[in-house]
């Protein structure tokens, strides 16, 4: 095979490999399992036009990297939010707990479930805190 042709095929092969790798990477980027934990939560933050908001929601799924839930408040991508999830006594060793998480919205879905306006995907930024329910609010 002439060297120029070989180079071309090598280059296209490498490109194909990179493309395949990129596709595989795109298809499976999540390292952690998402758990369907339908727990009640309060979402707090600031709306894109300024005012603060607090809204009750139900978590649809969650991992250590992020969560998905539905909201009525019109958030935009990049909004900072705090999520406080109620952990029932059953899981908290006989005490009600709250799981506090901070994050940033990374994706919005137009129609959320349960009559809510938008589905919101949040990537967690801050470290989490598990605190007793009575002392948190």
């Amino acid at each position: 095979m002439p060297p120029s042709v070989r180079k071309k095929t090598q280059a296209s092969g490498a490109k194909k490999k990179r493309g395949r790798a990129a596709r595989a990477k795109k298809a499976e980027r999540r390292r952690e399992w998402r758990l369907a934990l339908p727990l009640p939560a309060r979402v707090e933050g600031r709306l894109p036009w300024g005012p603060e908001f607090k809204e009750d929601a139900t978590v649809e799924n969650i991992s250590s990297k992020g969560a998905f839930f539905c909201l009525d408040s019109g958030l935009s991508v990049g909004s900072k939010v705090n999520i406080i999830i109620d952990i029932p006594e059953q899981a908290g060793g006989g005490r009600k707990l709250k799981l506090r998480l901070g994050g940033i919205t990374v994706r919005l879905e137009e129609t959320g479930k349960q009559g809510k306006r938008q589905g919101v995907a949040v990537r967690f930024k801050k470290d989490y805190k598990l605190i007793p329910a009575d002392g948190s609010d």
Binding site: E32, W33, S63, S64, I87, L101, Y128
Partner: peptide, 17 residues
């Protein structure tokens, strides 16, 4: 096969519930 303490906490909560 997990990498964070939060994920462990979520596993624990999920398994308890």
């Amino acid at each position: 096969d997990t990498h964070s303490r939060l994920q462990l906490a979520l596993y624990a909560i999920n398994s308890a519930l």
